[in-house]
Design a protein around this nucleic acid. Sequence first.
DNA 1: GTCTATAGCGGGATAGAC
DNA 2: GTCTATCCCGCTATAGAC
Lengths: 195, 195
Amino acid sequence: MQTDQRIVVAMAELLRRQGYAATGIKQVVAAAEAPIGSVYHHFPGGKRAVAEAALRQSGAAYGELVTALLAPHDDLVDGIESAFAEAAATIEQTGWVNMCPVSTVAGEVADAEPALREVSAEVFDEWITQGVGLFRERGLSDDDARSLIIAVITALEGAFVMARTLRSGEPVLAAGRSVAAYARTLTTPATVSAG
Amino acid sequence: MQTDQRIVVAMAELLRRQGYAATGIKQVVAAAEAPIGSVYHHFPGGKRAVAEAALRQSGAAYGELVTALLAPHDDLVDGIESAFAEAAATIEQTGWVNMCPVSTVAGEVADAEPALREVSAEVFDEWITQGVGLFRERGLSDDDARSLIIAVITALEGAFVMARTLRSGEPVLAAGRSVAAYARTLTTPATVSAG
DNA sequence: GTCTATAGCGGGATAGAC
DNA sequence: GTCTATCCCGCTATAGAC
C-alpha cells in the first residue's frame, strides 16, 4: 500500500477509537510505519487534511456497508432488523470499537473545527441520499424514505456510543427494535384498536 | 458560586462543545475565573477528576430534564413526541450546542479513558433506571420499558450529533417520529392489515 | 487556602540532508 | 520524494510565596 494511503487508514483507525483531538500525528505515522515528513509532503494541510481524507474514505465505505446489509432484503423491516443484529454482533466481536470514525469525530468537532464539521455533514448527506434511494425502491414516499433513513442512521450512531460505553450489545438491539417498528408503520398501515 | 463549583460548571460547558481531549485546563480556569492552582487544590486528580465531576453533575441534571419533559404526559407517545420537539427547538435556539456533555465525551473516551468511560456508563445506567420507572408507571412491562428508554436515549444522542453537524433540527424530529411510533406499538396493540 | 511562576513533556510542524 | 533532527508552542501539573 502507498504511503499516503497507509497514513489515511491509520488516521481513520485512530479516529474511530479516540476521536480527533486525542489523536496525534506522531501516533498516526507510527501506526502507518511512515516518516513524519511524508504527512506534510502528501498532505500540506497537515493533521486536519489527513483527518478530512480519513472521514471521506471511511464514510463512503461505511455507507456501502449499510447499503450492502439492507439491499438483499426485499422487506424493509427484515433488512433493518438484520442490519442492527449484524452491527451488534460486530461491535461486540471487535472489542467495542466503533465501526466508523464519523460518529466519534462529528460530536467533538461540530463547534470547533468548521472544516471537519463540513466534511462530516457531506458524509451524512451522502448516507441520507443513498438511503432515500434504497427505501424508495421499496415503495416508500420521498418524505417517509428520508425520515426513515435518518432514523436508522441516528439510531445506529447513538446506539454505538452507548454500546461502547456500557460494553453491551443491548442498546444496538433495542435501537433496532425501535427503528424496525417505525419502518413497519410506514409499510403496513396499521389499524389501531380502540382502548 | 464556590470556586470548585465554577470549575465543574465551566468544564461541563466546554465538554459539551469540544469534548474531553480538546478541552484544556487553562481554558477551564479562564472560563471559571479561577487560578489554575485551585483546580489541583480542590481536585487532586487533575483534569480527569474535574471531568468526572462534570459528567456526573450534568448527567444527573439532564436525566431530570428528560424526566420533567416526559412525566407531565399521561400518554407515553405524547410525552415522547413533545420531548423530541422541545429538544429540537432548544438545540437550534442555542446555536447547535449539545445539551449534555455525556454524549459528546462518551464516544471519544470509551477505549482510551477507563475512568471516564466508567462514569459515563453510570450516567447511562441511571437514565435507564429512571426511564424504566417512568414507563412502568404508564403500564409497560419491565422488558418493554427498558427497551423503550434505551431507544429514546440512543435516538436523542444520535440525533443530536447529526443535528449539530448538519445544523438542522430535522434529525431530532425524524428520530422523535421513529421512537414515538415504537412506543405506540408497545402501548396500542395494532392489527396489521394484510397487503 | 489562594494564587503565580515555572518545570517538564508532548504536540504539530518544518528545514534540509540525501 | 524520503526521511531525520529539531524547533517552537501549548499542555498538564507542581512548587512555593503569600
